[in-house]
């Protein structure tokens, strides 16, 4: 099973590397956001309890999330073209477990996202974020889970779509706001109650908490923090849910309508 998935994931990665525009585009955009917003908002950024933190630093985990969001989406969007007239047709008629199609495609997309996130992690020490070995590993693991979450979400949406244009619409009104309202851009302190509610039920908020934690606190402290563990549970649940949904979608065959008494 895993062998099929690995073959498919490797294909995703090779395709990505061979399209340099994609590499440049998906790393470049978050970097520009980070640099511009960081520079522009740092002077006015002064939320209670975060004295001394520059916006550049506050926004950093959010930029990692954004990068992962875009990388996952750009990878899973290929599902739409591939499924009805392309490579995936051949995969669907091959004797391959449906689960490995999902794991291969989602895993490949997540690997691409991780590859870019790791490049951006090089910047962490320069803004004073230096977690220890354990903390660094936890950051990487948290980013990997987030990648699976976003890639799985993108996959399960893309699978049912007929056109990439439709997917772009969904991205702008659903996926991007998920990131926007995750605490990536602004902290949750003192926001209106409705916004607080939306941000609390947003799984990306929790993913961001899980990523942000190890930058500031020791692993031991995090594993005894109820808040962080809750966020971790939400993140895990999100990943499992989107993977399950994806497998369910792939398993679904186009069904003929049952003949009614009149037409039979």
């Amino acid at each position: 099973m895993m062998r099929f998935a690995l073959s498919l994931a490797r294909r995703e990665f090779v395709r990505f590397i061979r399209q340099p525009q994609r590499v440049v585009g998906s790393i470049g955009q978050p970097l520009l956001f980070w640099a511009f917003l960081g520079a522009g908002l740092t002077p006015s950024f002064n939320p209670p309890g975060m004295e001394g933190m520059t916006y550049l630093e506050y926004f950093y985990p959010g930029v990692l999330m954004m990068l992962i969001l875009f990388a996952s989406i750009f990878s899973t969007i290929t599902v739409i073209e591939d499924r009805d007239q392309g490579f995936l047709q051949g995969v669907l008629v091959a004797p391959v477990p449906r689960l490995s199609i999902v794991v291969g495609k989602v895993g490949g997309a997540a690997a691409i996202a991780m590859f870019q996130a790791l490049i951006l992690l090089i910047a962490a020490p320069f803004i004073g974020l230096m977690p220890g070995i354990g903390g660094s590993l936890m950051v990487v693991a948290a980013l990997a889970l987030t990648s699976l979450g976003f890639a799985g979400l993108g996959f399960s949406i893309a699978w049912t779509m007929k056109s990439t244009a439709g997917f772009h619409a969904i991205m702008m009104v659903f996926l991007f706001p998920l990131w926007l309202l995750s605490g990536a851009l602004f902290p949750m302190n003192n926001v209106p109650a409705w916004l607080d509610f939306v941000m609390t039920i947003n799984p990306v908020t929790h993913a961001l908490n899980v990523v942000r934690g190890p930058f500031y606190e020791a692993p031991g402290a995090l594993f005894s923090s109820g808040e962080w563990l809750t966020s971790l549970a939400v993140l895990l649940a999100w990943v499992v849910l989107v993977l399950w949904l994806s497998v369910k979608r792939v398993n679904k065959r186009e069904m003929g309508a049952k003949p009614s008494a009149a037409t039979a």
Binding site: R3, F4, S7, L8, R11, V14, R15, R18, Q19, D84, Q85, G86, F87, L88, Q89, G90, V91, A94, P95, V96
Partner: peptide
């Protein structure tokens, strides 16, 4: 299939090997 089911970003050998690995 009528529409090509090969990955045009991969080489001929890679396409064939990938398909073979699925079997």
């Amino acid at each position: 299939f009528q529409s090509p089911a090969v990955d045009k970003h991969l080489s001929v050998g890679e396409n064939i090997a990938l398909h073979a690995s699925l079997y």
